[in-house]
């Protein structure tokens, strides 16, 4: 009968739904913990290993021994500290340059209509699809021509190759979605292009700049292959290469503890950068510009 199909299913009691909501919540928390353990365990393990001495390294205990000898050794190691400085220089310059280039390119690609725009965007994307190994030998020649071999500046030049494409892409998307009327209001208010960029666009681009900047920074900080290829001497190395080349006191000793201590140390600046900038990554800054 019709009435049978139309009749509503029996309404479950409220306690049933409450229990269901609790179970779902529990499962969510469990999943979150799983992901956290998965991502954080390697880092924790490195920390545990870095505080153990000698034979203790080969016991897989989960509790750190809290012996900071290796860290002290690292601080006293001028080559390692030098490589930290090199890394900071390279990463900061790469980030800064790729943001400057990315913003200018994105402003042009996102705002100015010209026939080759799509082609240019595709080319920008194409640049970033080649694996590092493919461009390595060509880059090597280029670096030599510029006379930059065995200089940290060479690394900045090569890292821009990877960072500029994605900063340009992300920022182009942002600028294209930026309300045109805001810009027009600024034009009516008498702003030049430069003033629009500095007073209107850049302050509102904070979140996208912070996120792309962080990505560029991490990429430049962690890069290994180019850094290994384009530097020759210890005093010009960046941290990842320096760690890779840490040697033990004898041929037969693998300096596991030191490497772990160094790995933990180099991650700290990254964490600091992310923590400082994450406050800027607040979505919805543009909310309220347009009807809301």
């Amino acid at each position: 009968m019709d009435t049978a199909t139309l009749s509503r299913p029996l309404r479950k009691p409220s306690s049933f739904h409450r229990a269901k909501r609790r179970i779902v919540r529990g499962l969510q928390i469990f999943a979150l913990l799983l992901v956290l353990v998965y991502t954080l365990f390697p880092y924790y393990w490195a920390f545990v290993s870095s505080t153990k001495q000698g034979a203790a390294l080969y016991h897989s205990a989960l509790v750190p021994a809290l012996d900071f000898t290796y860290y002290r050794q690292l601080i006293d190691n001028p080559i390692f500290m030098g490589s930290l400085l090199n890394s900071a220089y390279v990463a900061v310059c790469t980030t800064f340059l790729s943001l400057v280039i990315g913003v200018s390119a994105a402003y042009a690609l996102g705002r100015i209509e010209f026939p080759q725009r799509r082609a240019v965007l595709m080319i920008v994307l194409m640049i970033s699809i080649f694996p590092q190994v493919v461009v390595l030998s060509g880059m090597f020649e280029l670096i030599n021509w510029f006379g930059l071999f065995n200089r940290p500046s060479a690394l900045i030049l090569t890292y821009l190759l990877s960072t500029v494409p994605f900063t340009t892409w992300i920022l182009t998307t942002f600028i294209r979605e930026f309300p045109r009327e805001l810009e027009e209001a600024a034009i009516i208010d008498g702003c030049s292009h430069f003033r629009i960029l500095t007073k209107i666009l850049l302050p509102l681009m904070g979140p996208s700049l912070a996120s792309t900047g962080i990505l560029a920074f991490i990429l430049a900080w962690n890069e290994f292959l180019f850094a290994l290829t384009f530097t020759l001497t210890d005093e010009n190395r960046t941290v990842p290469v320096a760690i890779g080349l840490i040697a033990g006191t004898s041929r037969y000793e693998y300096p596991f503890g030191q490497i772990m201590a160094a790995s933990v140390t180099v991650t700290l600046p990254l964490i600091a950068v992310v923590l400082v900038f994450q406050r800027r990554i607040v979505a919805g800054l543009t909310a309220g510009a347009v009807k809301g």
């Binding site: 309300p179 009327e181 805001l182 027009e184 209001a185 600024a186 034009i187 009516i188 208010d189 008498g190 702003c191 209107i200 302050p203 509102l204 800054l285 543009t286 909310a287 309220g288 510009a289 347009v290 009807k291």
Partner: peptide
């Protein structure tokens, strides 16, 4: 003549206030 030199003021439908 560019917009800023025309002595005009424009009120937009979306207000276009500077959000920051």
């Amino acid at each position: 003549v560019p917009a800023s030199r025309r002595g005009v003021a424009f009120v937009f439908q979306s207000y276009a206030l500077y959000p920051h």
